[in-house]
Amino acid sequence: MASMTIHNLDDGVMKALEAQAARKGVSAEDEARRLLGAGVEAPGSAEDISRETAWERLQRFKEEIGGGIDFELELPDRKSWKMRPVDLGE
């Protein structure tokens, strides 16, 4: 396994890391390792998935379940939407 040293870490960040680790009952090093691991982008990470549009997410879901369910969604034509004032009840 690799190791690294982080120089010029803000004192406030270190104190917050130590406090967070203490609340979880782990060392500051363990907590830093967990945070770094969660923050690094990996292919298929949650961050990649969150960039999906709703349509892409539905298509991925359909593929994951084997595509046995055949469905199509009809999307409304946004050009037909009309601008109208919002009633705020005033």
Score class of each variant (00 low, 15 high):
residue 48 D to T: 05
residue 73 L to G: 00
residue 52 E to P: 03
residue 3 S to G: 12
residue 10 D to L: 00
residue 21 A to Q: 02
residue 48 D to V: 10
residue 53 T to N: 00
residue 11 D to G: 09
residue 80 S to T: 12
residue 75 L to A: 10
residue 64 E to H: 12
residue 33 R to C: 05
residue 87 D to L: 06
residue 9 L to T: 11
residue 40 V to D: 07
residue 16 A to G: 06
residue 80 S to C: 02
residue 59 Q to M: 13
residue 12 G to S: 04
residue 65 I to R: 13
residue 14 M to H: 12
residue 45 S to E: 01
residue 44 G to R: 02
residue 50 S to N: 13
residue 9 L to A: 04
residue 43 P to N: 08
residue 45 S to A: 00
residue 61 F to C: 08
residue 36 L to A: 11
residue 1 M to S: 10
residue 18 E to T: 06
residue 32 A to N: 04
residue 58 L to Y: 08
residue 79 K to S: 13
residue 12 G to W: 03
residue 51 R to T: 01
residue 9 L to K: 04
residue 60 R to F: 06
residue 30 D to P: 07
residue 70 D to H: 09
residue 42 A to E: 14
residue 3 S to M: 08
residue 56 E to I: 06
residue 57 R to I: 08
residue 80 S to K: 09
residue 46 A to N: 11
residue 79 K to L: 13
residue 33 R to N: 11
residue 50 S to V: 12
residue 9 L to M: 03
residue 35 L to P: 01
residue 20 Q to C: 00
residue 21 A to W: 06
residue 13 V to W: 04
residue 63 E to Y: 09
residue 86 V to R: 10
residue 10 D to P: 07
residue 51 R to F: 00
residue 31 E to D: 08
residue 84 R to G: 12
residue 63 E to F: 07
residue 90 E to G: 15
residue 19 A to E: 07
residue 79 K to R: 12
residue 66 G to T: 09
residue 2 A to T: 15
residue 12 G to C: 07
residue 1 M to H: 05
residue 6 I to K: 04
residue 12 G to D: 08
residue 4 M to R: 15
residue 27 S to G: 05
residue 22 A to C: 05
residue 68 G to V: 13
residue 90 E to R: 13
residue 3 S to Q: 11
residue 47 E to V: 12
residue 85 P to T: 09
residue 15 K to S: 10
residue 29 E to Q: 13
residue 71 F to R: 01
residue 68 G to D: 15
residue 31 E to V: 02
residue 38 A to W: 08
residue 47 E to K: 13
residue 29 E to H: 13
residue 26 V to D: 03
residue 6 I to T: 12
residue 35 L to T: 08
residue 84 R to M: 11
residue 19 A to M: 10
residue 38 A to I: 02
residue 5 T to P: 01
residue 80 S to V: 10
residue 46 A to H: 05
residue 13 V to I: 09
residue 53 T to W: 00
residue 29 E to F: 10
residue 1 M to R: 07
residue 11 D to Y: 06
residue 66 G to L: 07
residue 7 H to C: 10
residue 71 F to H: 02
residue 48 D to M: 03
residue 55 W to H: 15
residue 38 A to H: 02
residue 72 E to K: 08
residue 90 E to Y: 11
residue 48 D to C: 03
residue 36 L to F: 10
residue 44 G to V: 01
residue 45 S to W: 03
residue 43 P to K: 11
residue 52 E to K: 08
residue 82 K to M: 07
residue 74 E to T: 14
residue 84 R to V: 11
residue 87 D to N: 12
residue 51 R to S: 04
residue 2 A to L: 15
residue 87 D to Q: 05
residue 7 H to F: 14
residue 26 V to W: 02
residue 16 A to W: 01
